[in-house]
Computed example of a mutant assay.
Amino acid sequence: MINKVQILSVTSLGNLEAYIRIANLWPMLSIEEEKLLTQRLRYNSDLDAAKTLILSHLRFVIHISRNYSGYGLLQADLIQEGNIGLMKAVRRFNPEIGVRLVSFAVHWIKSEIHEYVLRNWRIVKVATTKSQRKLFFNLRKSKNRLGWFNQEEIEIVARELGVSTADVKEMEARMSAQDVTFNPFPDEDLKDGKYNNSNMLYLQDKKSDFANGFEQDNWDEHATHKLNNALLSLDKRSRDIIQSRWLNNSKKNTLQVLANNYGISAERVRQLEKNAMKKLKIAIEN
């Protein structure tokens, strides 16, 4: 339904004020009108009813999105995310539960906005667990002054939100910190003919060793070359036995399969394999 129903778009109008003005022009629905429309949608999959339900509730999305203006994100983006939550709510709403659609939709609208804020507020995620998400959206509301919490305030916030004091301290530190680039901006790379100090320059990659990697690649190439030359020194049958038994990655044949192919016993194949291995070892070591 979300992809099929066409609703107002902030970007299509190109002006947030125009969008809000048009959204507020749509009349609010009475209880009887809302119930009739939700029944048509639920039982008849009426997309026109869905469109009317969505358009008549856009004003509520705008109102809710204003509560998240302090996170430094565009109001238009917050509204668009809230609209997605509204559409999800309309699709899932059951008109027989006896509540208004807006009461049901508030959870879905806030949920989509919350996810958007968490994804875009910082480059580095600040909230991943359930308790951290709760703290993220409630910590600033709990502050009645600037500055860090004292121990008493930490304990009050932890008790009111049902989290540990350690979670409160950690989230306060995360929200107070700022993202720091590892690399300077392009126009700051050079200063007085020298590169500025960059955090990136002090990072050490202990897992990477170019010299060892080059040496290993060289050795593998050398070993492969010697093995190929050693195989060429064997007769055709012995070479086929070694390749079938040890160098075939897709399917390694058993002694009995090879015995059937050559019309000899499995024990004879084992002897040929053993002798071929000895010859290979001598050829590779020389």
Score class of each variant (00 low, 15 high):
47 L>W: 07
12 S>H: 08
217 D>K: 09
141 K>P: 00
31 I>H: 11
271 Q>L: 05
84 I>N: 05
285 E>N: 15
19 Y>V: 06
203 L>A: 11
260 N>K: 13
224 T>Y: 07
47 L>I: 12
62 I>C: 02
179 D>R: 04
96 E>M: 13
235 D>T: 05
269 V>I: 15
232 L>R: 15
11 T>A: 12
9 S>I: 13
69 S>W: 06
103 S>L: 10
92 R>N: 14
201 L>V: 04
232 L>K: 14
202 Y>P: 00
272 L>C: 02
282 I>F: 15
121 W>R: 11
264 I>N: 02
198 S>F: 01
230 A>D: 01
204 Q>G: 10
75 Q>H: 13
258 L>H: 07
256 Q>R: 12
143 K>N: 03
245 R>S: 01
76 A>E: 08
164 S>R: 12
15 N>P: 13
179 D>L: 08
22 I>T: 13
86 L>S: 06
43 Y>E: 10
86 L>E: 06
277 M>K: 08
232 L>P: 09
261 N>L: 14
271 Q>H: 07
184 P>A: 02
39 Q>L: 10
19 Y>M: 08
236 K>L: 07
284 I>E: 05
273 E>L: 09
21 R>I: 10
1 M>W: 04
31 I>W: 11
201 L>F: 09
10 V>K: 03
226 K>N: 08
274 K>N: 11
31 I>L: 12
58 L>C: 06
168 V>D: 02
163 V>S: 03
122 R>Q: 13
221 E>A: 09
213 G>N: 10
141 K>D: 06
145 R>D: 08
170 E>S: 09
100 R>Q: 04
229 N>K: 14
162 G>P: 11
101 L>I: 03
21 R>M: 14
235 D>H: 05
258 L>G: 05
96 E>L: 12
133 R>G: 10
182 F>V: 11
285 E>S: 15
280 L>M: 05
148 W>K: 15
106 V>R: 05
245 R>A: 01
177 A>S: 15
81 E>A: 11
226 K>M: 09
24 N>M: 11
223 A>L: 09
161 L>G: 01
194 K>S: 07
194 K>I: 07
97 I>R: 12
46 D>G: 02
206 K>Y: 07
215 E>I: 08
153 E>L: 03
16 L>D: 08
20 I>V: 13
107 H>D: 03
198 S>Q: 13
12 S>L: 13
124 V>F: 15
109 I>G: 04
270 R>E: 13
154 I>D: 07
271 Q>A: 06
254 T>M: 05
244 S>W: 04
65 S>Q: 07
219 W>G: 01
226 K>Q: 14
102 V>T: 14
60 F>W: 00
206 K>L: 10
19 Y>T: 06
46 D>K: 01
109 I>T: 05
23 A>H: 02
25 L>T: 04
116 Y>E: 11
141 K>N: 02
128 T>N: 09
5 V>E: 00
212 N>F: 00
220 D>P: 00
281 K>M: 13
50 A>L: 00
171 M>F: 00
179 D>K: 09
147 G>R: 02
212 N>E: 02
131 S>H: 12
